[in-house]
Simulated assay, not measured.
Amino acid sequence: MTVALRPELPALLVEEQVKSALLEDLGRAGDITTLATIGPELTATANMSVREAGVVAGLELARTAFRLVDPSIRFEALVADGDRVALGTAVARISGRARGVLSAERVALNFLMHLSGIASYTAKFTDEIAHTKAKVCCTRKTIPGLRALEKYAVRLGGGSNHRYGLDDAVLIKDNHVAVSGGVAGAIRAARAYCGHLVKVEVEVDGLAQMREALTAAPDVILLDNMGPDLLREAVALNAEHWRLDAAAYPGDLRRTRLEASGNVRIETIRAIAETGVDFISTSKITMAAPTLDVGLDISI
């Protein structure tokens, strides 16, 4: 059995994101409150602790915030990204010059709270469908500039990533079909344009469109805004189609996967997953995730 490794963020990406956030916060004159009230020789020790249970994400960004403000600050992670933690758990300990600790605090917490919130909310969705084969996926509905970070947090919460942008996979939506003139033709045109290494997905709004799509063998069919009963019909139709085409495509390697989308909430995802679809995509896990409450408390 293959064990999936936890995701990691490239160090250069982390550095760029954190540096930008610090420059935004420090502005033109730096942290004038801290500079005016805290002497340069004073030191402090602080704990970062969660004030509610959840999944941790963003520790490396927090570490980088303190390092960029003051390289002498010591940041000790007490848990790892992806860990589920209980209320009150200390996730990191910081020690060093107090000025740097205070000036980096908000940026470090902002990243940690936002990404941990996404990971924690995603985990709630994945827990709901753990008894099925379905995977919950995020979408391109992310905060501009933070997509890579938010998709990283989704994976830490047990979810899967949909495409990262317009350039890494084809997703033929209803407006593409309307302009191009048909589902099957759009799929074939996409394959001819992109080549064999690019996945092709097409959105359909009913079984008639799905039947047409299957004739062009897309990698994935997105079943848009279908209720559980219609989703079950779609799963059965897909299975029957590939049984009939078994001679041309032996085994399960060529089967079109099915993705459900639309009206996906924590209250509805279980029923959707139990229809037998492979993927369930929702913007809720990125756009509607509440932050995880994390605090930094200093002891001199």
Rank of each mutant, 00 (worst) to 15 (best):
H131Y: 02
V55Y: 04
A234G: 09
L223A: 09
L149H: 11
A184Y: 09
K135W: 11
G58T: 10
I266H: 02
S283T: 11
P144Q: 04
R28H: 10
R255E: 08
L156D: 06
D229V: 14
V202M: 01
R254Q: 14
I143R: 10
V198E: 02
A57Q: 05
K141L: 11
A21H: 07
A77D: 07
Y249L: 10
A53M: 00
V202N: 01
L258F: 06
G157D: 07
L23H: 12
D224H: 11
E233S: 15
L171N: 06
L214T: 05
S283Q: 08
A178T: 11
S180K: 07
A108E: 05
I187N: 03
G251A: 09
M287P: 00
D31F: 01
A46W: 08
G182Y: 08
R163P: 08
A53K: 05
T256V: 12
L42W: 09
T89W: 05
T34L: 12
A11I: 02
D31W: 04
R74H: 15
R155E: 15
L35K: 14
R74A: 15
I298C: 04
K124A: 14
F75M: 01
A192I: 12
I38G: 00
T268W: 03
G27Y: 08
T122M: 00
D168W: 09
A148N: 12
T132R: 08
D252M: 09
R28L: 15
A178M: 10
C194T: 14
P290N: 10
L253F: 10
T2H: 15
G39F: 07
P228Q: 01
K135P: 00
D297P: 00
A273L: 03
I300S: 11
S160Q: 13
V277P: 09
V18M: 10
K19F: 10
W242K: 13
A288M: 05
L59M: 04
L5A: 15
E274C: 06
V101N: 04
G30K: 09
R243W: 02
A11W: 07
S180F: 15
G159M: 06
L197R: 14
D25R: 03
D127P: 01
E15N: 09
L296T: 08
L149Q: 08
V179P: 00
C138R: 00
A153V: 06
V200Y: 12
L87K: 12
N47M: 15
K284F: 12
R93G: 02
G158P: 04
E150D: 06
M226F: 09
V170F: 01
I187E: 03
T126H: 01
V50Y: 06
